[in-house]
Design a protein around this nucleic acid. Structure first.
Length: 722
DNA sequence: GTACTCGTCATTTTT
DNA sequence: TGACGAGTAC
């Protein structure tokens, strides 16, 4: 057979990547360079040429959406059943592994997954029980501590506690571990850690999977965390080929643990010989790419890459200097109307901003002008209060020992079980070392028409009555039996929640259809599968779809998307780059990457705008154009409202007075400034957060990556700039 | 239990 | 400015 059809129309680099022999490789895939295509075509190619059967493929993505798209595209290339392949998110794959080997992992067959909300409430509950002052130890901090420890592969016992605070945290962590184990629940971080430990401990199992997954492919490799990388290493073993696709310039998730440095580590540890760069861009026109290339060129920590296009330069980038945020919004709305009038679909116009708070003015202006729009972000379907309540009833049917679920609905809708009764239950449960459910059952007796005994009866009857029903019928039954529907129907303010409850029935139905098609040995029953699905995949980011509407979202949310026209608003110092980023390790470079991602979303037309004044936190703030605007060559920009915009573009960048970064000077004349990255002999890398005094009195406060905040006298401390 | 007030807080977010 | 949680009053 000559070259297969699916290999046609690939450029030489893409072709090289797709047909690479079995070896570990790094594909540096620039924005719009066809990375998903390369990934999916490679998988198809590997199978088609008989190098591997579907079962030998493991492909990891970061979002369920990406995983789904990958599967769809593979199916369109090959008439194979993709069931045998393991394609999914890290968490999804871990779940699959743990379901298949729950006994070896010391988990119940029907273990449930806690989402972030559930985890936080579990921690709050635990802390109340342990009588820990939540003023002194904020539950959110505790969650952070635990997740952070797990991300480093540490159990409570492994955490080194040098101070009282950490000691306390560790105690809570330990109690939390026990609580989860008792209830048969795992949080997101636990999925990873547990499956990692399982493979590490269980050699036959590890060898089994290492022998099975001959080809491992990772999407968005720059977004992997340190632990996810370790996880990959373990499942890959020494023999298998890891095909990592990523773009260090689009690494914008360091704040949630992404470690782009994994790319270099990967090259070293997997002895990567082939680094293939995909630099031809099929999305944007020349001027947009030039701006993006030059901007990102200001970053120092790069693997290096330059996007190019076979298309022409296209339109210039439009720059608008607004007098206020209000003015900026007005301008944008006018331009949008003009674009729509010119025939651009509203859904092909994106309005991007750095932080969600900025959307308000824009929404207001769009609304007033009756331009249809759609805002991304906010609560997702399975995170909604009413849906979580319904799911809690489902969870109780699946596993009554689930205390989190029980507490959520024991008195919702209200049925006269007050804080007092709940405390009593908790006390009994603790004394006897049993679940709340068991404590509730024991409480029975006297009057079973109300209170806790009635609740026990309710749950039991629900379980009995829904036994023969299919999933969707179960959901429907419980919605009514629990009184949830009646409760919301009776409410004046929350009646619209009923719709979402009805939607949940649809979701169950839809899930059932898919699930029946690929029932696997790992998933014992539809109910647990559905609950897992709900926890692992929180659903669409609201905003009613369907209508052709302008898309509003943060730059983060826009990653991976593309639009005919893009507006990047709020390009002011302090907003973009965000002021807080100055206190973070390599914060400015990450902000620049964010800007790079924003720019590369545009195919044809790009608008940049900033406002000289803006309402922020209820106060009027005067801003200075972002330094990123100055990094884009003037010749690419077309100032819309000269001379302000012209002046903004032309003037050389100066450190704005409002953000004037204080410096301090040592005796020896060495200067340090806020935001600077430094290296300490003992504490390692960190970033300067405050400066005080000068000469022999010079002091700095440094936020160290490992050891946190430290105050150092420069006279003694050995601090060197990085 | 619900409705109100007060105080606090304020990037980015997937699983 | 405005959203949210905690606490208080009925």
């Amino acid at each position: 057979m000559t070259s297969a059809a699916y290999l046609e129309h690939l450029n030489p680099e893409q072709l090289a990547a797709v047909t690479l022999p079995r070896q570990s490789a790094l594909i540096l895939a620039g924005a719009g360079s066809g990375k998903t295509r390369v990934l999916t075509t490679r998988i198809a190619h590997l199978i088609q040429t008989g190098q591997v059967s579907p079962g030998g493929i493991l492909a990891v993505t970061f979002t369920n959406k990406a995983a789904k798209e990958m599967l769809t595209r593979i199916s369109s290339l090959l008439p194979i059943n993709p069931r045998g392949m393991w394609v999914g998110t890290f968490h999804g794959l871990c779940n699959r592994l743990l379901r298949a080997h729950h006994r070896e992992a010391n988990l119940p067959a029907l273990f449930q997954i806690l989402d972030s909300q559930d985890q936080l409430s579990a921690i709050k509950r635990l802390m109340k029980q342990l009588n820990i002052d939540d003023e002194k130890y904020a539950p959110k901090q505790v969650v952070y501590f635990i997740n952070n420890a797990k991300e480093q592969g540490l159990r409570a016992n492994d955490v080194e506690a040098l101070d009282d605070m950490t000691q306390r945290y560790r105690e809570i962590y330990s109690a939390y571990e026990q609580q989860c184990q008792r209830e048969g629940v795992v949080d997101f971080a636990e999925l990873l850690l547990r499956s990692y430990e399982l493979l590490q401990r269980n050699e036959p199992l590890r060898q089994h999977y290492q022998a099975r997954f001959k080809f491992i492919l990772v999407d968005e490799f720059q977004d992997t965390s340190r632990f996810q990388y370790e996880w990959l290493k373990q499942i890959a073993g020494n023999e298998n080929a890891v095909f990592a696709v990523g773009d260090d310039d689009q690494s914008i998730y360091a704040f949630r643990g992404a470690h782009a440095g994994n790319m270099q580590t990967f090259v070293r540890e997997f002895a990567v010989e082939k680094i293939i760069k995909l630099e031809q861009n099929y999305r944007s026109q020349g001027n947009i790419l030039d701006a993006a290339n030059i901007l990102i060129g200001h970053n120092s920590e790069r693997l290096g890459k330059n996007l190019w296009t076979a298309e022409g330069a296209g339109e210039p980038i439009r720059l608008y200097a607004a007098s206020s945020d209000f003015d900026e919004a007005q301008f944008i709305v006018e331009e949008i109307r003009a674009l729509i009038k010119d025939g651009v679909a509203a859904s092909q116009i994106a309005l991007l901003y750095r932080s969600n708070a900025q959307s308000r003015v824009l929404e207001h202006a769009l609304f007033s002008a009756t331009v249809p729009y759609r805002v991304y972000g906010g609560l997702r379907f399975f995170e909604r209060q009413e849906v979580k309540h319904a799911l809690a009833y489902l969870r109780l049917i699946a596993n009554p020992e689930d205390d989190t679920a029980l507490l959520r609905v024991i008195n919702f809708p209200t049925r006269g079980i007050g804080a007092r009764s709940i405390e009593q239950l908790q006390e009994t449960a603790r004394e006897q070392g049993v679940s709340l459910w068991q404590a509730a059952c024991k409480k029975g007796g006297k009057d079973s028409s109300k209170g806790v005994p009635a609740f026990v009866l309710l749950i039991e009857s629900m379980r009995r009555d829904s036994a023969g029903l299919d999933l969707a019928e179960q959901v429907e039954h419980l919605l009514h039996a629990s009184g949830l529907v009646a409760h919301y129907q009776a409410s004046k303010t929350e009646a619209d929640r009923v719709e979402n409850l009805e939607e949940l029935i649809n979701a169950a139905n839809a899930f059932l259809k898919e699930y029946d098609g690929e029932r696997t040995e790992e998933m014992p029953d539809a109910l647990t599968a559905f609950l897992t699905h709900a926890a692992l995949e929180a659903g669409d980011n609201q905003a009613a779809s369907g209508q052709d509407a302008v898309q509003l979202m943060t730059v983060h949310a826009a990653k991976g998307l593309e639009f005919h026209s893009v507006f990047i608003s709020g390009l002011e110092e302090g907003l973009c780059p965000h002021e807080n980023s100055m206190f973070e390790q390599d914060g400015l470079e990450e902000e620049r990457r964010l800007m790079y991602v924003a720019i590369t979303r545009a195919r044809r037309r790009l608008y940049l705008s900033f406002a000289q004044s803006r309402m922020l936190h209820g106060q009027l703030r005067y801003g200075v154009p972002s330094r990123f605007l100055h990094e884009i060559p003037e010749k690419l920009l077309k100032p819309i409202n000269a001379p302000q915009a012209q002046a903004a573009a032309a003037s050389a960048w100066e450190e704005p007075r409002t953000l004037l970064t204080p410096t301090t000077e040592t005796e020896t004349g060495q200067t340090f400034r806020i935001g600077q990255n430094v290296l300490h002999a003992k504490f390692g890398p960190g970033v300067i957060v405050h400066c005080h005094g000068r000469g022999v009195n010079a002091e700095v406060e440094v936020n160290f990556r490992q050891s946190g905040m430290k105050r150092l006298a420069l006279q003694y401390a050995k601090l060197s700039p990085v």
